[in-house]
Computed example of a mutant assay.
Amino acid sequence: MASTPADHADDHTSQVIQSRLLVIQSRLEYLFSGEREGAEPYTESEVARALIARGYPITEGGLRNLRRGEKINPKATTLIGLAEHFGVPPGFLLGEGDEPTLKAREARVLARTIQDLSPENRRKIAATIRDYQELEALKERASRPSPPDQ
């Protein structure tokens, strides 16, 4: 049977992920350690339950295999689910870039939360945000020294 372009794309994706497996493992160890939040380490069981609740089917054993490198081809959806759970971009797990800043993580959490609201409530929140931006701009202008009289 002849291979298709999709087969080649899957092969390439698999090769990229396999070549980054050590990076994935080290990033997962860092995230599971809890040290970035100053918290207790996460367990595979609690992370698996959280992922399943969000619609990412994975078992505790599946996470353990991924962390130990025993599973060499994680599904992209598993990596996306893990990234969402830990509040990092999926590329972070593949070694792309550093950990996002607190400000960027908060913005992503806020965006995910807002998307579940009705369009009317999203418009209200957008208006509130604009109001606060205007207030902060006014405060900043008021705190600047006045130019000298000429």
Rank of each mutant, 00 (worst) to 15 (best):
A39K: 15
E46W: 01
A83T: 00
Q15L: 03
Q18M: 05
R123E: 15
A9P: 00
L21R: 04
E44A: 10
Q133T: 08
L28K: 05
I17A: 06
T43K: 11
A107H: 10
Q115C: 02
L94C: 04
R123P: 01
G34Q: 01
N65S: 14
S26V: 04
E96R: 09
I24G: 01
F92Q: 02
G38W: 07
P145Q: 13
A104I: 05
R27G: 02
P119W: 05
S14K: 11
K103R: 14
S14P: 00
K124S: 03
A107Q: 15
R105M: 04
A107G: 10
R54E: 13
D10N: 08
L28M: 15
A127Q: 14
G95D: 11
L82R: 02
R122H: 03
A6F: 11
K139H: 00
I114A: 14
A76K: 14
E37S: 11
S14Q: 10
R68C: 02
L66E: 01
D116N: 14
T101M: 07
E140S: 11
A107S: 14
T128K: 12
R105S: 08
Y42S: 05
I24Y: 03
G87R: 02
Y132S: 00
R36E: 09
K103P: 01
S26H: 14
T59W: 03
K103M: 06
R123N: 09
A39Q: 15
A76S: 14
G34Y: 02
L31K: 03
S26C: 06
S146L: 13
L82E: 03
P5E: 07
P41T: 06
S19G: 15
P145H: 12
P119Y: 06
I58N: 02
N65Q: 15
A83V: 00
S45H: 12
L21P: 01
S146A: 15
P100L: 07
A107L: 12
G87V: 01
V16G: 00
R67E: 04
E35A: 11
A137E: 15
E35I: 11
L135M: 09
G91L: 04
T128E: 15
K71Q: 14
L102D: 09
A9R: 13
H8S: 13
N121M: 07
G61V: 04
Y56Q: 00
S14C: 07
P57Y: 08
G91N: 09
P100N: 07
K103I: 05
R123F: 02
R64P: 01
R20D: 04
L63N: 05
H85G: 08
R64T: 12
S26R: 15
E46M: 13
D149Q: 13
P119E: 06
I17C: 07
Y30R: 07
R108E: 09
F32Y: 12
E60T: 10
D116C: 08
K75F: 03
I80S: 07
E140K: 14
K75A: 10
L66Q: 02
A104D: 11
T4C: 07
A9G: 05
V23T: 12
V88R: 06
E120I: 04
R49I: 05
I58A: 07
